[in-house]
Design a protein around this nucleic acid. Structure first.
Length: 750
RNA sequence: GCGCCCUUAGCUCAGUGGUAGAGCACUGCAUUCACAUUGCAGGGGUCGGAGGUUCGAUACCUCCAGGGCGCACCA
């Protein structure tokens, strides 16, 4: 039979088959590993676990995913070969807003058409999502990922729903859930609230207007948002500033651009007496700081912009008719006409935009909003607040972030952390189990006095019944922020809360995933979701499991093009990882992605770099051809008598092994890749293989040389396997044609 | 405003308290012998600037300059 070695290495001919072999072996599942070798035995008692950051269920694999998968697969394969029971768990994210938007666009539907058919709508979106899921899963497989597919999870499946509800109930019980009417970030385009983290600021040139509410109003006010001034209720000045004498006075402005204002002058430390006019117009409904000031002084709130960005509640004929931009122009025009506009200057200021939709963010008051309070003390966690727990998890060293400087970034973020708004007004997601009295509670006869006990809303999995009235409770329509469910990911994928409950109930501790694999060892992801995801997981795990979610966080950077530009469809510089795997092989792409790429640093990928790594794969292929053509499998024990060339290569080999092991244990894969590359190409191939050609012709040295050739190749294959799994596995099969001897489960360095 | 990072060969980047490395690019030579997806040889950097610590600094500290990023934001 002609050997496959008769031709150059063609990744496309082998990759699918090799992946199928791996999968069929069952070795991706830590429970199904083959018996350990002698060298693996002691490690087999240990476990190594990771979760794949769940990609968007409707997404397509991009270069960032490819990097994530590559790095994690290197960790997983290395630990597995070392002998550890290695679990790398796959899953996908329902990504509520993104998926719903994509669905509506693709199917040319409008959510309003489903007003009365919410369930039907959600089913349609879900079917669509799950249909798409197979695409990205197939793509992840193509990257060679050694994920345990038997444990595949989805953020919106039934097990995860249970976890989400349980988490919410426990937080509610612990008093960590705030509910009510709050000022929120409203995304006008996306028609939903978003958390502070989901806002991006864009610096633009705009006008700063200085004006007076009326001719006899004593204090000039500056603003970039004249239209919101229709909702002003006060002017705040520093208690000791130049406007001190007016504090406490009240002004009735009969006509401010057609509306009526009642402006109270209050003194507040938050106002910088040196800045601007030294006083601030207070718009409690449309500014968080103003809202706080208003609260301190017991001022009313007057909402003048609604969820569609339309003016309301001003008593002018603009109400319900004109939008923000037009209102601004009209207010400015009015100020000019009335000669109340004192100054207009061009300044740079920041506009808040929703990260997902790109829509402008307006601050609005909204009812029935849920927040997770980060400053409430939790008795069952030593009286600490979530904020403190989050800080301590890293400060104590229980969680190590690589690279280390991101710990500072994390602390800085924690220090500025506010309560987390978890209510979203989209439908595709976990519906918040909150029920409202609808219509209002009207106590039955004899219970009139009990109205005070009636609850406006109840948090419950099932529809509650009011003890005192016949009114129905109606479930709120909001869903949870996607990050609420992904925050649970490290343990919701491992059987929480079911396993945790079994343990609490004192049932004989069955071997279960939660006990075995949580906290997970490594959480690897891009630094761009440090706050969105990493921090949320720490919060959730600290409160719900009383432990950290993971021990090590490995952060990678962005992948950029040769010009260091971010890859984007609009720039047309996107490198499609799947194209590259087809063209150069998955191994080449993987190696190119991590070669010379330090953690936390943005990296550069070019087709040329990938091509270079294909050359390396080919080099290895030819080394293997040479070794196999010149040796046979019988002899394995290393010879005592060695030539200088023999000694040299064996020394380099053991040096490479030592360094690689040390660096791999410390997750320094970018250095390991270089070391192995150097060894294989420039030591083994360039030096020893050349020397061996002479030695093979020498009767006295021939046998020893064969042994060393095989030994070195075998070792090199194990070193390289985590990085380039396909080609190394293929060569391994030529070396060891016996069935079931898969390199992926072999001992690293044997 | 607060904080983080970067500045090393033409390009993209690793790296370390003991006078520098990789990939790509470049130059010359070689080539039926595992591989042209190749081999051999070579050129190229006072490691952004200034001070300090040290026997010794590219690496540690301080300051400066340029660039990037995160958070906050003042009306």
């Amino acid at each position: 039979m002609a050997s496959i070695f008769d031709k150059p290495y063609e990744p496309r001919e082998h990759e699918e088959n090799i992946y199928r072999m791996w999968e069929e072996s069952g070795f991706f599942n830590p429970d199904k590993l083959p018996p350990p070798t002698a060298g693996q035995a002691s490690e087999r008692k240990k476990r190594f676990s990771m979760v794949l950051p769940p990609p968007n269920v409707t997404g397509v694999l991009h270069i960032g995913h490819a990097l994530t998968i590559t790095i994690e697969d290197i960790f997983a394969r290395y630990q597995r070969m070392r002998g550890k029971k290695t679990l790398w768990l796959p899953g996908t994210d329902h990504a509520s807003i993104a998926t719903e938007t994509k669905f509506l666009k693709e199917k040319k539907l409008n959510r309003n058409d489903y007003k009365e058919k919410r369930g039907e709508f959600i089913n349609l979106v879900n079917d669509y999502a799950l249909q798409n899921q197979s695409v990205i899963i197939k793509q992840i497989r193509a990257m060679g990922a050694s994920l345990d597919w038997s444990r595949l999870a989805f953020t919106l499946d039934e097990k995860r729903r249970r976890a989400v509800y349980e988490a919410f109930f426990r937080m509610n019980k612990a008093g960590l859930i705030k509910h009510g009417e709050y000022l929120i970030n409203w995304d006008i385009k996306g028609q939903t609230t978003v958390s502070d983290d989901e806002i991006e600021y864009e610096t633009v040139k705009g006008s700063l207007y200085t004006f007076k509410y009326s001719k006899d109003f004593p204090i000039p006010i500056a603003t970039t948002r004249p239209e919101t001034k229709l909702g002003d209720v006060a002017v705040a000045a520093h208690p000791e500033g130049k406007w001190k004498k007016y504090i406490g006075k009240e002004y009735n402005i009969e006509n401010f651009a057609g509306t009526r204002l009642n402006i109270k002058i209050v003194g507040d430390e938050a106002v910088d007496p040196e800045f601007g006019t030294g006083a601030v117009g207070i718009t409690p409904a449309h500014s968080k700081i103003d809202g706080e000031i208003a609260q301190r002084h017991g001022l009313p709130t007057k909402q003048v912009i609604n969820e569609y960005g339309v003016v309301i509640n001003t008593g002018t004929d603009w109400d319900g008719k004109i939008k923000i931009k037009e209102a601004r122009e009209k207010v400015i025009e009015w100020l000019k006409n009335e000669k109340l506009l004192e100054k207009e200057e061009v300044i740079e200021h920041n506009i808040a935009k929703a990260q997902r939709s790109g829509g402008i963010i307006e601050i609005l008051p909204k009812r029935h909003q849920f927040f997770i309070s980060v400053n409430t003390s939790v008795p069952e966690r030593g009286g600490k607040t979530l904020k403190e727990l989050m800080r301590e998890a890293v400060e104590s060293g229980k969680i190590k972030i690589i690279p280390g400087h991101f710990e500072k970034t994390y602390f800085h973020w924690i220090d500025n952390l506010h309560d987390w708004n978890i209510s979203r007004q989209v439908w595709y997601g976990h519906r918040i189990p909150a029920w409202y009295h609808e219509p209002k509670c009207v106590p039955r006869q004899g219970h009139e006095g009990d109205i005070v006990k009636c609850k406006e809303f109840i948090v419950s999995a099932e529809k509650p019944k009011c003890e005192f009235c016949d009114a129905e409770f109606i479930q709120g329509t909001d869903t949870f922020d996607t990050w609420f469910s992904s925050g649970l990911w490290t343990f919701s994928t491992l059987g929480w809360p079911a396993y945790a409950e079994a343990a609490t109930a004192g049932k004989p501790g069955p071997e279960n995933d939660l006990a075995n694999f949580h906290p997970i060892d490594v959480l690897e992801t891009g630094y761009d979701i440090l706050f969105f995801w990493i921090a949320k997981m720490i919060l959730m795990s600290e409160f719900l499991t009383g432990d950290v979610p993971f021990r090590t966080v490995y952060l990678h950077g962005l992948v950029r093009d040769e010009r260091k530009q971010k890859m984007s469809k609009s720039l047309g510089n996107v490198i499609d990882p799947l194209d590259m795997t087809k063209k150069y092989g998955t191994d080449a792409l993987r190696m190119a992605l991590i070669f010379n790429t330090a953690p936390g640093t943005d990296s550069v990928i070019s087709e040329q770099k990938i091509k270079g790594m294909k050359n390396f794969a080919n080099k290895l292929w030819n080394i293997a051809r040479f070794v196999l053509a010149n040796t046979s499998p019988e002899n394995e024990a290393l010879p005592q008598k060695q030539t200088n060339a023999d000694k040299d290569i064996l020394e380099k080999l053991s040096e490479t092994e030592k360094n690689a092991a040390k660096n791999l244990d410390q997750f320094r894969i970018h250095e390991v890749a270089q070391e192995i590359y150097q060894f294989i190409w420039h030591e083994f191939a360039d030096v020893y293989l050349e020397a061996s050609k002479l030695q093979l012709k020498d009767g006295a040295l021939k046998e020893n040389t064969k042994i060393i050739l095989r030994h070195t190749l075998r070792q090199a294959l194990t070193f390289l396997h985590p990085f380039m799994p396909f080609i190394t596995e293929k060569i391994w099969q030529e070396l060891y044609p016996e069935k079931n001897k898969l390199l992926m489960a072999e001992e690293w360095s044997k």
